[in-house]
Design a protein around this nucleic acid. Structure first.
Length: 752
DNA sequence: CATAAATGTCATCTT
DNA sequence: AAAAGATGACATTTA
């Protein structure tokens, strides 16, 4: 187990490092489930002892109960405060890991698993693929997906805190420490590198030797290398996209894992961070852009593009990666015409751009994408309109027009035109369109959202919504301990005096009942595909529960003996007659009140005193002839005892509140993600419609003729839709007055 | 021994 | 109005 833990820990650390290599400063900590800590408590995160306890299935340390709470609270607050800040979903992390791994390591000769050594004491025996899996799992753990049987919990417990730690306070240290580890892995891999890689490898080596502090520089250099290579490729921009990819792949072989690793995407990302990211991007985009010819027939363009895109997989991966990297954000980048090609990109872009807070925090590197953007965007300042502009020049089909067209479906000629167009030329959206659109788009947008959202709660839900085939582990079901549950537990605790039975009615009840609830929940969580969250959440609850339960219940339940200590420790096993003795030697274990009661020779147990209903309690007092001092003590004991429980409940309640808040936040995240997704979809559909509309426009104008039978340039005229369903032709630049009664009152009910 | 976290206690307010 | 609960603040205990 320990080993496994190590693996995971290392995995996470490496992920973090990888991120850093990519230049992305990822704050992993905040995104790790707060529950991580809850299980073991902040201290335990770094402590082996407690970890072991947990591992062995032993009871959690009681002490960790409130710790969890505290940290949870802290974390929660952090979340709340960072609601508007970048968030990198853990799931995202995972994905990256899988993909980045090869990249960062530059896994040697095509696909053959490079022997990893030294992996900081855990990975040494694993083959490359295994390593990957390990790392992946670790990440998974981080992302709260549990998938590795017994391992997961442990791994999670340990790794997450570690990562978090690194993030929070010891980035530098971690980097330094783990750099070596990482390097070790790489060093071996390096031996299998090919020439080109060797170069990179050396660079890395130096960097690493450097103490790992200059990983940024390394990135730069690597990026530069890539850029150079890309630049050369760029010269041949005429080559097909596929060719480009192939070339890239050849240059940076990733073996059989290519599909996962998506070298291109990675490289691009890498390059993007470099000094001159442009080449790379252009390389990728140029093939597409090259098709861009305003005069060209749309359909033809599509066909061309489709032809080019043959190997969708690669492209898709590319796009996906790109999306993840956020290198291409603006939908405006991609002409609708190219939507097929980069649909994924296109989609995100629109929404992503405005809705991607992580731009800034995303290593501020993301912006680098922008270098390109200007150039591309320059063609059209407004993304969505780009295509239209492309087709019609200073088109009317601007956003203002669009609505008209869309709304225009109301039985006006245009509507018929549109419909006919749809029927006859459903091609536009085309196969790719639909495929990418729905599947990819969703996933992509989703991923993006996830990225944006920040991993924890949101991502979970998001991921959940879109079943990902990407290998992401999205088991993380949304906030498991739904508010209701926590509420329930709480309410039960507060109101369930009866259920609790063990004691009479008084306060203690709350806890015990809680315990029950907790236990149940926990079981449920564990049994099902309990998302980590749930588990953790329950765990966190459980802790308190257990704590209270075990010692507490024990005390309450069994301890009706006279003033028996509530100790759960060594003394427990001893028989009662030795109690007194134990009092003396280990009075610390005994409550002061117990001791006092003992001293005062009070004839009943403190539990009785505390938990007895008032009437019975009074009765009890009357039945015994007690001195005033004794009575006072008894009352004090009762008061204190009750207050003690009250305090416990109070504290726990606070935790509950925090939990609820947390859940609320999660819910909001989820909601936000949903909205963003929806937004992306809407954008997409709008884009499609615009595209179609542009097609229609073209079609219409291709058939329009003036009095002399000459074709009317679409650039000079515009179509106006009247309320009566008439379509009027107006000059584009013409004053309003002119556009009114243009003789051409074409009733194109029949477009085609 | 110092310290942080966990618990306990008290005073006070609320139910 | 009494009893119990809740809770902030402070004290004590634990690790």
């Amino acid at each position: 187990m320990v080993c496994l833990k190590k693996y995971f820990t290392e995995g996470l650390i490496q992920v973090a490092i990888l991120f850093s290599l990519v230049g992305v400063r990822v704050d992993v900590g905040p995104y790790l489930p707060p529950w991580n800590e809850m299980i073991l408590g902040p201290t335990s995160a770094l402590t082996q002892t407690q970890f072991h306890n947990q591992l062995d299935g032993q009871d959690l340390h009681p002490k960790s109960v409130d710790l969890d709470g505290f940290f949870t609270a802290r974390r929660l607050l952090g979340w709340v405060r960072s609601l508007d800040r970048l968030r990198v979903p853990s799931s995202e992390l995972e994905t990256w890991l899988v993909r980045r791994e090869p990249d960062a390591l530059v896994v040697g000769a095509q696909g053959q698993p490079a022997p990893l050594e030294g992996g900081a004491g855990g990975l040494e025996d694993h083959a490359g693929d295994q390593v990957e899996s390990v790392m992946r799992s670790s990440v998974v753990a981080g992302s709260q997906e549990v998938g590795y049987g017994p391992i997961r919990e442990d791994s999670l417990d340990t790794t997450a805190p570690l990562l978090r730690r690194s993030h929070e306070e010891e980035d530098e240290d971690l980097y330094e420490e783990d750099t070596d580890m990482l390097w070790q892995d790489h060093s071996d891999l390096g031996r299998h590198q090919r020439p080109e890689e060797e170069l990179v490898g050396d660079t890395w080596r130096e960097i690493w030797r450097d103490g790992g502090r200059s990983y940024d520089l390394a990135n730069r250099e690597l990026a530069q290398d890539l850029s150079d290579q890309f630049a050369s490729l760029e010269a041949q921009s005429s080559m097909s996209f596929q060719e480009c990819l192939r070339l890239l792949e050849d240059t940076f072989p990733f073996g059989e894992e290519t599909e996962l690793s998506d070298p291109v995407g990675v490289d691009r990302r890498e390059a993007a961070r470099g000094e001159d990211p442009t080449p790379v991007r252009e390389l990728l985009l140029s093939p597409l852009l090259s098709h861009e010819e305003p005069s060209l027939d749309l359909e033809q363009q599509w066909h061309d593009i489709l032809a080019t895109m043959e190997p969708e997989d690669m492209d898709m991966d590319l796009g996906r990666d790109e999306m993840q990297s956020g290198s291409i954000q603006s939908s405006s980048l991609m002409d609708p015409v190219h939507q097929d090609v980069s649909l994924h990109q296109a989609i995100l872009p629109g929404s992503s751009r405005d809705s991607y807070p992580f731009n800034s925090s995303f290593g501020g590197s993301v912006p680098l994408e922008d270098p390109l953007q200007p150039a591309l965007l320059s063609q059209s300042s407004s993304g969505p309109d780009f295509d239209l502009n492309l087709t019609f020049g200073p088109s009317d089909l601007t956003d203002t027009t669009l609505p008209l067209a869309l709304n225009g479906t109301v039985g006006n000629p245009m509507a018929s035109i549109q419909s006919s167009l749809f029927l006859e030329e459903p091609v536009l959206p085309s196969p790719l369109g639909s495929l990418l659109d729905d599947a990819l788009l969703d996933e992509i947008s989703f991923l993006d959202l996830a990225l944006e959202e920040g991993f924890n709660p949101t991502q979970a839900s998001q991921l959940e919504e879109l079943d990902s085939d990407s290998g992401l582990s999205l088991n993380f079901s949304h906030s498991p301990a739904s508010p209701s549950s926590s509420e329930a537990s709480y309410s039960s605790s507060s109101s369930s005096s009866s259920s609790d039975s063990v004691f009479s009615d008084e306060g203690a009840v709350g806890y015990s009942s809680d315990m029950e609830v907790i236990v149940t929940r926990e079981e449920g969580a564990v049994g099902g595909y309990s998302p980590e969250v749930r588990k953790m959440c329950s765990t966190s609850y459980q802790k308190p529960g257990r704590f209270n339960n075990l010692p507490w219940l024990e005390q309450v339940g069994h301890d009706h003996t006279y003033n028996q200590p509530r100790a759960t420790s060594p003394t427990q096993g001893k028989s009662h007659y030795s109690k007194t003795y134990e009092h003396d030697i280990s009075d610390k274990l005994w409550g002061r009140d117990e001791r006092r009661a003992l001293a005062m020779k009070i004839p009943f147990s403190n539990d009785l005193i505390v938990n007895l209903p008032v009437e019975e309690f009074n009765e009890l007092l009357t039945k015994h002839s007690l001195s005033e001092a004794q009575l006072n003590l008894i009352r004090d004991i009762r008061r204190r005892g009750k207050n003690k429980m009250a305090a416990q409940n109070c504290r726990r309640r606070k935790l509950d509140v925090l939990f609820e808040l947390e859940e609320g936040v999660e819910g909001l995240y989820r909601h936000k993600a949903r909205l963003l997704k929806q937004k992306a979809e809407n954008l997409r559909s709008v884009r499609e419609m615009k595209q179609q509309l542009s097609g229609l426009y073209q079609e219409v104008f291709s058939r329009l003729r003036d009095e002399q039978g000459r074709p009317l340039p679409a650039t000079d005229y515009t179509l106006q839709f009247g309320n009566d369903g008439q379509v009027l032709l107006a000059t584009r630049n013409g004053s309003p007055s002119e556009q009114n009664r243009k003789p051409h009152k074409k009733q194109k009910n029949r477009k085609k």
